[in-house]
Design a binder for these strands. Structure first.
Lengths: 141, 141
DNA sequence: AAAACTGTTATGCATATAATTACAGATGAG
DNA sequence: CTCATCTGTAATTATATGCATAACAGTTTT
């Protein structure tokens, strides 16, 4: 799995906690600890789904455009990480005349997608608001 | 995620379906479609957990040593894939004086391990016997 | 003693991930 | 209008991971 899901959670949490709910890619990148171009790539996807709006030009940046109690980690997982549970290499599918070899790929695909569904259902119960609260409670131990 | 979980499921299913529940790494590797050394590596781990026994020397190989209705995909996931949900690169942790940047890593770690727990609970309900049945029913559509 | 296995390590190669650079397009300030 | 600033996006490079392959010691059967 790559880290775009992580980055999305980070960015939205950050925007959610800022007073004006706004920041540009430079500021966000410093917090995320990555390159601004990477932040723009992820936030570009979030923009297409309507989670943020962008303002170009001087003083521009990204503006949160969603209710943090309505956005779930499930939404973000589906958008940015779906399919990553299944590895690119999978067993079987060769020329072996073996029942397992011939059918394992369909079976494993169901196993991976079933697992992913369980994962998504779990993440559907966690909202962005929950995450912002976690961040804040970590700040006051 | 790497494919050792997949390989483990494949190997145990294969052994389970063979009449004598036995095969050597060459035969298994052909079915899995990989190199025998890779099969030996995974089956070595399964041996340490008692799922299989090995017989060295001529006519040797791996022998299934478990009840397929008792072994779950959860067991195999924990053994071979636990921790793979969390990417190696994670956000935050830099020098940014930002609440999110300072605490996101602990929060994300909980998010990933919580997700993995949901995944494991799902896989705990699928046994190796279920998989062998799936393979066989794929064979007769 | 020889042959057939496993167990394990080392090496090379392919792929995936992240960093970086670059630049076109859009917008607001002056 | 023009310039500075910011997003959107593509191309390139660097690094990490995953897999294939080769090699060899150790074990067991014949």
């Amino acid at each position: 799995m790559n880290s775009e899901f992580n980055i999305a959670v980070h960015c939205l949490t950050l925007l959610s906690l800022k007073k004006d709910h706004m920041a540009n890619s430079d500021e966000i990148a410093k917090s995320v600890c990555t390159h601004p171009a990477r932040v723009r790539k992820v936030l570009g996807l979030l923009r297409k789904q309507g989670y943020v709006t962008t303002k170009e030009g001087v003083g521009g940046g990204y503006l949160l455009n969603a209710d943090s109690s309505k956005v779930t980690l499930g939404d973000l997982y589906r958008l940015l990480a779906r399919g990553s549970l299944q590895p690119s290499w999978c067993s079987g599918g060769g020329e072996s005349a073996c029942v397992v070899s011939e059918h394992i790929q369909e079976v494993m695909e169901r196993i991976y997608s079933g697992g992913e569904l369980a994962l998504e259902r779990h993440y559907d119960n966690i909202t962005l608001l929950d995450v912002t609260r976690d961040i804040q409670s970590e700040n006051q131990p």
